[in-house]
Design a protein around this nucleic acid. Structure first.
Length: 411
DNA sequence: TCTGGGGTCCTAGGACCC
DNA sequence: TCTGGGGTCCTAGGACCC
C-alpha cells in the first residue's frame, strides 16, 4: 500500500508577503487588489472576517475597512517555492508538482530512510518553517485524492493522516463540497438530489448519479465517496496549451482596440511557445462580455506555428463575426492549443513567406529582448503613440512586420 | 469601484471515412 | 435505394482547480 503526502502552503502568497513584516501578522491582509482584480490570497485574520481568495478586491475592501493590500511579488513567490520544492526533493524523487505552492509526494520508498509517513510530514513542516519562514499543512493518505482532502482538513499549520482502513470514516462526515473535484455546480446539483454529505453520496445508487451527471462523471462521483480516484495524473505530464488574456481597464467594443489587444496576446503566446520549444496546432480566442458571459472560438492553423503574426491572423478571423455584435467586451484572450514539439514537427513553409520569414525575425527579437530587456523591443502597432509616418494609419494586425527595435538605453 | 489569469479535463454534436 | 455501425477530428461550452 502506498503512502502519499499532499503538502500545501498556508495562504502562500500572503505568507510570503508578510514573512518580514511581523507588524502585519495580526492585521487583515490581502495580496492583489489592483483595478478590477480579485483577491489572490488572504491571510487568516482576513479570512476570519469573511475574505476569501477569488472574491473581488473592491468587495473585500468594502467588507473590511482598514484591510491592508499588498501587491504581488512573483519573484519572491518563485524563490520561496523553489526552496520548498528542494526540501521535497530531499525526501523523495517521486514529487508531483501541483502548483507553485503544493505538491504530492509518494513516500512509500522513503520510510526505511526517513521514518513513518507522519514523521516525514512533520519533518517537512518543521524544515519549511525553519528555512522559509512560512507554514504548511500536510495530508497523508493511501491515494492522492485522500491526501488532498486530508491536507485541506489539516489547515492551517497542521497534519492529518488517514489510514487505508480509515478512509470511509474520514470522508463520510464531510460535506460534498469539501471533496476535491466537486465545485459549486456539482454541489448544487447534488443538493437538489438530497445529497449533502459524503455519506449521502456513498448511499446514492450509482445509476442515479450516472443518469444525472453522465456515465463517466456519475461513476467518478460514486467512486470519490469511497476515496477511489480514477483520475490519473502522470508525473511531469506535458503541457497541452498556453494562453494569455487580459481584462480591459474599461469595457470596449472598439475593434481597433480589440484587434491590438489580440495582437499583444498573440505576441505573448508566441513568445512562450518559442521559449518552450513548442508549436500550436490550434488557436482559440476567448471573449468575455460586460455581463460576464464568455464565448470561445477556435480554428486549426494552416501549419503548426509559434509566430505571433500567424496566431494573430487566425485570432482576427475568429473575432470578425463577433465584432458585428457591437457588444461591450471586458476581456480578450488568445490560446495556443494542441501543442507539439517544434523540433519534431516539420513546418511547411507558406508560399507567401519571404525567404527570411517572420519566425526568424521573432526569434531575433527574442534574443534582443533577452539582451536588452523587454521594453527595448516593441511592435510598432502596440506602441501607445506610434512614431513616424505609420502613426494611426494601419489597422492593427495588417502590419505584422512593423516591429521597431529601439536602441537600448544602456550599453 | 463586484467578479484575474493560468491551466486541465469532459461532453456532445457534426463531419468524414471505412 | 436504403441502411448500419465504429473511429477520429473539429468545434463549442462548461466545470473545476490554484
Amino acid at each position: 500500500m502506498s503512502a502519499i503526502l499532499h503538502v500545501d502552503m498556508d495562504a502562500f502568497f500572503a505568507s510570503v508577503a508578510l514573512r518580514h513584516r511581523p507588524e502585519l501578522w495580526d492585521a487583515p491582509v490581502i495580496v492583489g487588489g489592483a483595478h478590477r482584480s480579485v483577491v489572490l490570497a488572504a491571510n487568516y485574520p482576513a479570512r476570519s472576517l469573511g475574505i476569501s481568495s477569488g472574491m473581488s478586491a473592491t468587495a473585500a475592501r468594502r467588507m473590511v475597512p482598514g484591510l491592508v493590500t499588498v501587491p504581488p511579488d512573483y519573484d519572491s513567490f518563485s524563490t520561496v517555492s523553489a526552496g520548498v520544492f528542494a526540501i521535497f526533493d530531499s525526501v523523495t524523487d517521486r514529487v508531483e508538482r501541483g502548483s507553485i505552492e503544493e505538491a504530492f509526494l509518494d513516500v512509500t520508498g522513503s520510510t526505511r530512510r526517513m521514518g513513518t509517513p507522519r514523521e516525514i510530514g512533520e519533518y517537512i513542516r518543521a524544515t519549511v518553517a525553519d528555512e522559509q519562514q512560512i507554514t504548511c499543512s500536510v495530508g497523508i493518505g493511501p491515494t492522492r485524492f485522500v491526501a488532498k482532502v486530508a491536507s485541506r482538513q489539516a489547515k492551517p499549520d497542521g497534519l492529518v493522516e488517514v489510514t487505508p482502513a480509515g478512509v470511509a470514516d474520514f470522508l463520510h462526515p464531510l460535506r460534498v463540497e469539501e471533496l476535491w473535484g466537486i465545485g459549486r455546480s456539482t454541489a448544487e446539483a447534488l443538493h437538489s438530489l438530497g445529497v449533502f454529505t459524503v455519506a449521502d453520496l456513498a448511499r446514492m445508487p450509482r445509476g442515479v448519479l450516472q443518469h444525472t451527471f453522465g456515465p463517466r462523471s456519475g461513476a467518478q462521483l460514486a467512486d470519490l465517496a469511497w476515496g477511489r480516484d480514477s483520475r490519473r495524473v502522470t508525473l511531469g505530464a506535458r503541457e497541452h496549451s498556453t494562453g494569455a488574456s487580459e481584462t480591459f481597464g474599461v469595457d470596449t467594443w472598439d475593434p481597433v482596440i480589440i484587434g491590438r489587444e489580440l495582437l499583444r496576446m498573440s505576441d505573448r503566446v508566441a513568445r512562450r511557445l518559442r521559449a518552450s520549444g513548442n508549436l500550436a496546432r490550434t488557436v482559440s480566442i476567448s471573449i468575455r462580455y460586460s455581463d460576464f458571459s464568455t464565448i470561445n472560438r477556435s480554428a486549426v492553423l494552416p501549419t503548426p506555428s509559434d509566430v505571433a503574426g500567424e496566431l494573430h491572423e487566425v485570432a482576427v478571423r475568429l473575432f470578425a463575426p463577433l465584432a458585428k455584435r457591437r457588444r461591450k467586451i471586458r476581456r480578450v484572450g488568445v490560446r495556443g492549443e494542441q501543442m507539439v514539439l517544434s523540433d519534431s514537427t516539420y513546418r511547411q513553409p507558406r508560399l507567401t513567406d519571404p525567404e527570411q520569414g517572420w519566425r526568424e525575425l521573432e526569434f531575433a527579437i527574442d534574443a534582443a529582448s533577452e539582451k536588452f530587456g523587454r521594453a527595448s523591443v516593441q511592435r510598432l502597432a502596440l506602441l501607445r503613440r506610434p512614431l513616424g509616418t505609420a502613426a494611426g494609419i494601419d489597422p492593427p494586425g495588417t502590419d505584422r512586420a512593423a516591429t521597431r527595435v529601439r536602441a537600448p538605453r544602456h550599453g
